[in-house]
Design a protein around this nucleic acid. Sequence first.
DNA 1: TCTTGTAAGTGTATTTGTTACATTTAATTA
DNA 2: TAATTAAATGTAACAAATACACTTACAAGA
Lengths: 229, 229
Amino acid sequence: MYTGYNLEDRVFLAVDCIIFGFDDEDLKVLLIKRDFEPEKGKWSLMGGFLKSNETLDDAADRILHRLTGVHDIYQEQLYSFSDLDRDPVARTISTSYYAIINIEKHNEELIQQYNAQWFSLADIPDLIFDHNEMVQKAIRRLRRRTSINPIGFELLPEKFTMRQLQKLYEAILDKELDKRNFINKINSMDILIKLNEKDMTSSTKGSFLYQFDQEKYDKKKGDNFYLKL
Amino acid sequence: MYTGYNLEDRVFLAVDCIIFGFDDEDLKVLLIKRDFEPEKGKWSLMGGFLKSNETLDDAADRILHRLTGVHDIYQEQLYSFSDLDRDPVARTISTSYYAIINIEKHNEELIQQYNAQWFSLADIPDLIFDHNEMVQKAIRRLRRRTSINPIGFELLPEKFTMRQLQKLYEAILDKELDKRNFINKINSMDILIKLNEKDMTSSTKGSFLYQFDQEKYDKKKGDNFYLKL
DNA sequence: TCTTGTAAGTGTATTTGTTACATTTAATTA
DNA sequence: TAATTAAATGTAACAAATACACTTACAAGA
């Protein structure tokens, strides 16, 4: 005899994704305008229900792919939300994930199909259910994670300037950083390759492009390096 | 018409609790010997199913209370585990929580009733399902949390010596600390009250007892003080 | 009562890391 | 060729973290 497995205790388990992107100025979140019930017409996170043949990670990846066309990007489970009345239709627990993607690489058609739009953190509208809470939690987590893991690179194009990287960190941490100190700290991590190429769009002089050195990073990962900005 | 709410997608949602305690020497975890199926006779975390009228936090509190007799102790959601075959009986997702309790304060009768036992971290046996993974994740989280939040005090009796506190941190972080540096750091946080009382059991000289100053701590909490040990 | 043993209690110098800060360079455009 | 714009670069002052050794209080036993 099995204890506890009462069919009436089963619940819907949703997965909602906070998708972060960066556009050279601002950190942004991708939201969809719902054209289905409940809360049709309101903004919300992209989400879906866990299927019986997939894990939560799978579901998050599927949901993200459906909206952006990309797979296998940085993604992390955030928290499971379970307020009794969080979903008015049925008792639904939601496990939230946050993902960070290169804003240039998503599939524009899909985004339009879902009436999706990028919102700067400062302009996030009222979302359905507890989605605003999820976004806030994701921002806090992303900030903390940034000091431990150099995940920021996922948000930039393959080649980027120091200035872009600094702008990104400033957007994530929501504070200004000193240019020289920033460069020194980044260089001391020793996980970037300085290219013999310049980006000429930003100034007449041009600024050197850098690339993330995955190999070096993988070697150092174990050392648990902490980047204090 | 509602999208996605298909009854067959519903799952069992379990809550499993990693319960930490400290006995002056070692950090320990409370495990139960299952006298019910599945995996009867094996060691596991205390757990249960989420009921329709409670949140995950509620469920974690209920489960913890059932085993230890205590309510309202430090407790935090850890992670939701969802491997397809993690539970052989039925598709079950488990949200794990970890709790830290004063090892002296639990209800001994309840513990015996559940065939529960405290295990040092080094001696944790094979557990059912993915419970070992949960415990490992909880340990990592507890270690990280310790440097941000002085949650360690929850594990000690109300009055404690500096040496006990140091032993506790050494057990949590699994490394030796310098006595003088430790005391200086703890004092610099300024959240302890030094009592005019000594504990005479540890030495002939006796060592002063301290108490956690909840009021001072609450005031400082906002400053997000970081304790690097 | 004096010697011995045990853990408690205490401060500083050195090293390391963090911050603050200003000038020169390279190229384009007027 | 002068003016403009952003890029690139190094150091000194300050703060924080670490390493480290001797004295004190008391009890127990000689």
